[in-house]
Simulated assay, not measured.
Amino acid sequence: MAAEQYYDEAMAILARDGAAGLKIGPLCRALGVTSGSFYHHFGSWSGFVRRLLEFWETDQTDRVVRLARATADPLQRMVLTKELTLGLRHDCDAAIRAWAAIDPEVGRAQRRVDGQRRAALEQVVADVVPDAAEAHRLAVLGISLMAGFQQTCDPRDKDLLRGLFDDYQRLIMTYAGAPLGSGPPSNG
């Protein structure tokens, strides 16, 4: 069994049951493998957690940043970033945020991911909003919007999140000096 299958199932368990539900036994049962197979792949629980967090960071942050940067047009990059962000596993992110409050290693990973996401968003916004200080504040607002949504709403409510991100995009366009309705149309 590939390590990615363990990570995908662990993310599903986190999204459904939170960190308290993520244990070797339930994970192995869900995958139909033995705990020996788990230890063969990861050596220990802490080894698994470290690699799971690396997978999460790569899959849910690095991949999104790479895909967004592949688009040359700044307005299209902003729209693509929004669409890619809508596709994140927000229910899993919400569980990781809660887990981060009680596990220092998870907390470090969460802060690193938030920092990477903010920096990437700031680059996207700065391509549309000429003032660097405004672009920075708008990026912090965007990450805060996403994290707040994950913590205070049903993270599976994609319609609400799309509406919030559409509002956020309109706000960015006002800072860019464009009329409120300008920019590429939303797909929602």
Rank of each mutant, 00 (worst) to 15 (best):
G107F: 04
S35C: 05
H40D: 03
A101W: 05
S44H: 03
I172Y: 01
A20F: 02
A95L: 04
Q76W: 10
T152H: 12
G177F: 01
R69M: 07
V140P: 05
G18Y: 10
G177S: 02
Y168L: 09
L145D: 02
L80G: 04
G177M: 05
A133N: 11
L141C: 13
V33C: 00
F38C: 00
G18K: 07
E83V: 08
L161Y: 03
R66Y: 07
L80N: 07
Q150G: 13
F55H: 14
R29E: 05
A2Q: 15
L84Y: 06
Q150P: 03
A178E: 12
L145W: 06
A109M: 08
D59Q: 12
D17F: 05
Y6D: 01
G47V: 02
E4R: 15
Q76H: 11
A2I: 11
L22Q: 00
R117H: 05
T174R: 15
W99K: 05
A10M: 00
V113I: 14
M1W: 03
H41F: 06
T152Q: 10
R156I: 08
V79N: 10
D73Q: 13
T81F: 12
L84F: 04
G183R: 03
M78W: 02
C153A: 14
G163N: 11
V129H: 09
D131V: 14
P130E: 10
Y175F: 07
M1K: 11
H40R: 13
L180P: 05
R117Q: 07
V49L: 10
